[in-house]
Simulated assay, not measured.
Amino acid sequence: MSRLLELSGLSAAYGGVRALDGLDLHVDEGEFVVLLGPNGSGKTTTMKCVSGLLKPVAGRITFDGRDLAKVPGWKRPAIGLGHVPEGRQIFPDHTVMENLTLGAFPVRRKRAETERRREEMLELFPRLGERSTQLAGTLSGGEAQMLAVARALMGDPRLLMLDEPSLGLAPLKVIELFGYLKRLHEERGLTILLVEQQASTALRLADRGYVLDHGRVGLEGSAAELRDDPRVQAAYLGQLRESA
């Protein structure tokens, strides 16, 4: 598999507080990779640096061999980066269809292509088809998360990044959402980078994973290796040791 995303020595900070400290990780074309770790370990910061919402203070990010330091954040969807941020951030005063249309805007699709892609999303997420004229702010939590994913897919990304998509969802909705992600990966070959607190569920879907600890990689390995490693649970309790 070819290397699609690579982070080398990445450091980032909020004011004087360092959130990433020399982070190294990669995602290959066609992989499903999960980022795990306790709150404050740098998972969301990693996503923000890749999508251009936060500028790193050191290190390098390459996407398909291209240095992202030379690509402003607003242009990154057009080169194949899709980001579903924490909290969904859909447009509540716009309809489902309008939200989907806005998802195509950064890649400057022609009207016919936008309409084709929009219909594809409604077929993939039938619930959205039933709610197509409904304001996004009136959707249930699960429906809103589906809309956030579908909006990101409107740009036909090569890499889909999702930050805590299960947050606030009922267990059955989590299963439904992760079922969609499995289909996107297995049936469509979509490359996925997922930040998730529900480690056991995420590792059943993923090919590989990283456990972050204080802005660095504390553990990495195949999903099976991490799933069976007792230190993964320790990471969530903030007890991961440097010797790991």
Results as ranks from 00 to 15, higher is better:
residue 173 K to Y: 00
residue 102 L to D: 00
residue 168 G to F: 06
residue 135 L to T: 01
residue 125 F to Y: 09
residue 123 E to R: 14
residue 99 N to S: 07
residue 108 R to W: 01
residue 172 L to E: 10
residue 150 A to N: 10
residue 163 D to S: 05
residue 97 M to A: 15
residue 148 A to K: 06
residue 103 G to E: 09
residue 134 Q to A: 09
residue 158 R to Y: 01
residue 160 L to T: 02
residue 169 L to T: 11
residue 172 L to T: 14
residue 158 R to W: 08
residue 125 F to M: 05
residue 120 E to N: 11
residue 101 T to K: 10
residue 169 L to G: 14
residue 172 L to C: 00
residue 115 E to N: 07
residue 144 A to Q: 15
residue 151 R to Q: 12
residue 138 T to P: 00
residue 121 M to F: 10
residue 94 H to S: 13
residue 150 A to Q: 08
residue 112 A to F: 00
residue 161 M to K: 08
residue 142 G to A: 10
residue 133 T to A: 12
residue 146 M to Y: 03
residue 87 G to S: 12
residue 157 P to V: 12
residue 102 L to C: 03
residue 116 R to K: 15
residue 154 M to N: 03
residue 134 Q to N: 08
residue 151 R to C: 04
residue 155 G to E: 10
residue 105 F to E: 13
residue 100 L to W: 13
residue 91 F to K: 11
residue 146 M to T: 02
residue 143 E to P: 11
residue 173 K to R: 06
residue 109 R to Y: 01
residue 111 R to C: 06
residue 168 G to M: 03
residue 99 N to T: 13
residue 164 E to P: 03
residue 106 P to Q: 07
residue 145 Q to F: 01
residue 139 L to E: 10
residue 156 D to M: 13
residue 164 E to Q: 07
residue 150 A to K: 09
residue 96 V to L: 01
residue 157 P to C: 15
residue 92 P to K: 06
residue 154 M to P: 05
residue 123 E to M: 10
residue 91 F to E: 09
residue 169 L to M: 09
residue 145 Q to L: 05
residue 163 D to I: 12
residue 132 S to C: 04
